[in-house]
Each structure stands twice: as C-alpha cells, then as structure tokens.
Design a protein around this nucleic acid. Structure first.
Lengths: 219, 219
DNA sequence: CCGCCCCTCCCCCGTCCGGCGGAGCCGGAT
DNA sequence: ATCCGGCTCCGCCGGACGGGGGAGGGGCGG
C-alpha cells in the first residue's frame, strides 16, 4: 500500500541550498520536491499554485523574509501546508518569530541530512516539530519577550506620547517645543511625566524603553 | 586523450554546502573532490597533505577564516593551488580582501552550478579568474536587498563598542566608569569618540542609532 | 457646582553632559 | 628608530537636563 509522496516546496534565496535540499529529499521515495522559490513573495505564490504538503522556508530572503511569507501563507490559504523554518545560526531570535508566525517546525541548516528527512516526514503527521537547540533558544527568547507590552503605554496622555516619540527620535527639549509649538517649560513638564510613568530617570532610558516596548513601531 | 581530473578541496563549515558542492562538482567527469575541511586551519593542513589543484574556500569559518587560510596556504606552499573564495554575502570588503590575499577567483554561493564548474575549469588554466561585472552586479543587488549595516560599527574600537552598549542600556557616564573599572574622564573620551563616529550629538541619539543599527542584538 | 484631569507656563537649583585642549603610556607597523 | 592608533586620565566651561515647587485655564463627569 503505497501512499502518495509528500509534496514539498523549497524557499531559499541560495540556489546552492535549494539544490542540496532537493538532492537530499529527492533521494527518498516518499518525498517529492514539486517547486522552488528564491524570495518570500515567490514562495507565497508558488505555494498558492502548487498546494504542497510541506514548505522548507529560509528566514533570510529578498523581498519578503521567510517569517512574513509564512504569515501570509497561513493567513491566506484554507488548507495551508506545514511550514518548517530553516536558518543557519542558532543564536538568531528567529525561533520565536517563526513559531509566532505559525511555523510548524524550526531547524538549522547544519542539521544532518537524515534529520532533515525525518523532520519532513514527522511534520506532516504531527502538529509541531522542535529541536533541542530551537527549544533552548525559544526558552531564552520567551523569557525576554514575554514581559510583554508594558502597561505604562496606556497611561500616557496624548501630549506625553508625542513628547516620548520625539524624545526617542533624539530631539532636545527646545526642538520638541518648537516642533509642538509650545513653550520649553511645557515640554519639561511632559518629559517629567513621561519619565515618571515609564519609570526611567532620563531621556535616554525613556527612548530605550520606547524602543523596547515597540512604541516606535506604532505607526 | 584523457587528462587527469582536476583535484579539488572544499573548505566550508557547513556540511550542507560541502555536500552540495561535492554533488555538483563530482557530476563532472573531469573534476574530482579529493578532500574537505570545516575550518580554516583544517583547510591549510588538508591542502598541504593532498596538494589539490583548486580549493573552494568559504570566507566565514571557525578558527581561521578563509582569507587567512588563503594567505597561509599561498605563503607556505611551493606550488600552491588556485584558490577560489566563496561567500554568501557581498556587502563586506571580502572581494578586496580575497584578491589581496592572493585568491585566484571570487564567487558568490548564489552562483549557478554551471558557473561554478566553469570557474573551476577556468581557474586551473588561467592566472586569474575574474567576474568583475558579475560580482559588481550581484554586490549591487545584494546591497539593495540587504541594506548594509551602517559603516560606523566597524570603525568603533573595542572600548568604544563597550561604552556604546552601556550607553544604550541607559547608564550614566559615572555608572559606565564603575562598570568598566576606569575613570570617568576615560568614559567621557570614549563617549565623545562614539558620538563622533556615529554622527550623533548626544547619548540619546547614539542609543537610538545603536538600536536601529541592530547593534544591541549583537550578542 | 465642584472636583479632577489635562495642558499650558513660570521660577530656582544642582547635576550631568558634551566640547575644548592637553598629556602619558603602550604596542604594532613602518 | 619613529610614527601611529588605542587606552588611560586631567581641567575648564557653557549649556542642557531633571527635580522641586507653583499657577492658571479648559473640559468633562459626578
């Protein structure tokens, strides 16, 4: 009772890597590489067209990186494939990003060939797939990331948010005053309020807090 | 009239890359991969033992990088092999370094398989192997896709990097001085150098620059 | 109507910061 | 043997910063 082969799409901007992966996977009778993509955007369309069972997705790719491509694929397809994110370095913080994006697995390029093959087989049958190094990185990342969206953001008033944004852009109080068309004394008041609410002692720490809270990415 | 095959050594710390290169090259009847190395130091000894015609040398490797390994091989052997330096990224000055070290050629890993094969054949027959246009084009494209990290990072000295890291952690000069076990005056000197090199005017802007350059994610 | 919050602005004061010039030491390169 | 770059410090100064008060006005809900 032969079952149909597992259909695989490779997404990696390096031709060499794709070739290597294809060689390794195609040697297995139950695996079939049905498509390749060199960019994240290409990966999305190729997967949409071919509807594979598994995608091996590199993180670093032109146009759209592997994380975003993963998000897009999972968001737009009814029956999305299992996506295994592949990267070179284990100290990357990509593990967390990959899993948050919905990737089913995460492994390193330095993995042995048979580990790769097993991973593909495993991932179509189980919900998720994690390797020890990935788990370790995940734990570290989790601890770092989970202190989550600080509560102080919500406590900031409108003006205070503006001031923090300009502070974290590197402006002096005088510049902020000109930009906001208020007096320097007013800016000092707002700055003091921001420092108090963020629990920081100077504008540099406030700027750092803004960055680490993701505050600067808010539009 | 069959001539002896071209004897090749592969030096790359990634198993996958070596496998791929071996697969590509071994498919050609006139090419023969006679050895592999995973570090620069290993490459030197392997080449010394086997005396190959060509070495495909990765730039980034543990222990000794590809550039130094190239230098050592060319300096210590009477009849050194042609060395082709292979790398993934082009934004660095590796091309210049490679050629200065005496490499006969320079290739990007994203090169097509047949280009690779041709390169190996070509390099044993000619004094040098140049793909100026290709390299430049790829470099330009690569620089477009992966915006290069600001050049100032490389210009920072060791102490200056430490100071920037602590500055961007929100420490005052006095705290940095205690942490680094130097005088406050010394910290001020380093801070001034950091501000100059980063093109910023105060510690807040420097901290922002550090964050936006991804400097704080480095280790 | 009254309190409360937000925004606006003022003063004083001590500290920290950044710019300036100068100096000695050391190790590697020339 | 000399030069250069990195690291370590010094003093001086003006300006920016942050803390501590206080004060007036406007809006909104109790």
């Amino acid at each position: 009772m032969t079952r149909p082969p597992i259909r695989i799409v490779l997404a990696d901007d390096e031709r060499l890597v794709r070739t290597a992966l294809r060689a390794i996977l195609s040697a297995e009778p139950d695996l079939e590489v049905v498509g390749e993509a060199a960019t994240g955007a290409e990966a999305v369309s190729v997967v949409r067209d071919l509807g594979p069972d598994v995608v091996l997705m590199d993180v670093r790719m032109p146009e759209t990186d592997g994380i975003r491509a993963t998000e897009q694929i999972l968001a737009t397809l009814d029956e999305p494939p299992r996506i295994v994110v592949v990267t070179t370095f284990e100290n990357d913080s990509y593990v967390y990003d990959a899993l948050r994006a919905g990737a089913a697995g995460f492994l390193l390029k330095r993995a042995e060939a048979d580990l790769l093959v097993q991973a593909v087989r495993l991932v179509v049958r189980s919900d998720s797939l994690l390797f020890p190094s990935a788990v370790r990185a995940l734990a570290a990342e989790h601890a770092r990331v989970y202190p989550a969206p600080p509560a102080w953001i919500a406590r900031l008033t409108g003006r205070e948010s503006e001031v923090l944004r300009l502070m974290a852009a590197g402006l002096t109080n005088a510049e902020i005053a000109r930009r906001m068309e208020v007096g320097p004394a007013t800016v000092k008041t707002h700055v003091a309020a921001v420092l108090a609410k963020t629990g920081t002692r100077d504008r540099t720490q406030a700027a750092i807090a803004a960055y680490e809270a993701g505050f600067m990415k808010t539009r």
